Simulated assay, not measured.
Amino acid sequence: MSYSKAFCNVYNQFGWNYFPEAFGEQLLTWMEQNQIHIEKSLDLACGTGVLCEILHAHGINASGMDFSEGMIAIARERNPKIHYDVADMITYRPDQKFDLVTCTGDALNHIMELSDIDRIFANVYNDLEDGGYFIFDILNEKEVPMEEPIDLDFSDTVKAQFMVTHDPDGRINLKTTVFENGIRQFEENIKEIVHDEKAVCELLCKNGFRVEKCSNHFLENEGNYSKTWYVIARK
């Protein structure tokens, strides 16, 4: 989906980077533990490019794509050395193959139809080198937060409130309201849907992948369990 410029700026400046930063460190640990060498990576729905930057800093030829021009503009400004594309994840076809494709931050839950996810999986399979990995997360239906507001302080003057609601069709709406000095600056509504993890894994197998892991924790020795399913698939 395409985010407003205001949302992209808040995303970049005040706290949304914690997830790609944390996942990036886990990913590097996973590679080290399993002696996996990655030369080229692609991050689908990369946002402001934080995960790409982490991989790039560790010698990986990282690239990213996102549907939001605002997110990509920030990503390019943060690190001009990394290649980024503005594109639709459903139809995106890069001109090279990768050892690793990632798609995190429940980005696939923004894709409303399983048929479109099927198309993404087919494309990713073709865009991977033989033996390459596809790693992503999707929301865990049992862990989706209920309809209670969550308040977060970005700074002494900037506050945000999050409210997750469900509509009759089973879709999730995340409403983000940002305040500065007590005055509402903007509001953003993001639509998502929870996909059954078994159906998602079946689509991976249909497209030729071998599912190596589908779990609510990424690292085997990790003590904290996530509100998402982590999926590791291999071509």
Score class of each variant (00 low, 15 high):
I54A: 10
L55N: 05
D95E: 14
V158H: 02
K5P: 00
H166W: 14
N126Q: 15
N17T: 08
W229F: 15
E147S: 14
N9I: 05
N189E: 06
D85G: 02
G49T: 02
N140L: 02
N189Q: 05
K81W: 03
P80I: 07
S63L: 01
G170H: 09
I38D: 06
S2Y: 04
E21W: 05
D137I: 10
P80G: 10
F98V: 09
N126S: 14
L55H: 14
T48D: 05
T176F: 08
T228L: 00
V211Q: 10
Y3K: 05
N61R: 00
L42F: 04
M65N: 02
A160M: 15
Q33S: 01
Q161G: 14
R76G: 12
V144H: 08
N181G: 03
I111W: 07
G59C: 12
G132R: 12
D118M: 03
A199C: 09
F7N: 08
V86K: 02
L114I: 12
G70W: 01
V200P: 01
N9D: 11
D43K: 01
R119P: 01
V86H: 01
G208T: 03
M112F: 04
C214S: 14
S41I: 10
I36K: 12
I138R: 12
N189I: 09
N173P: 04
F98N: 10
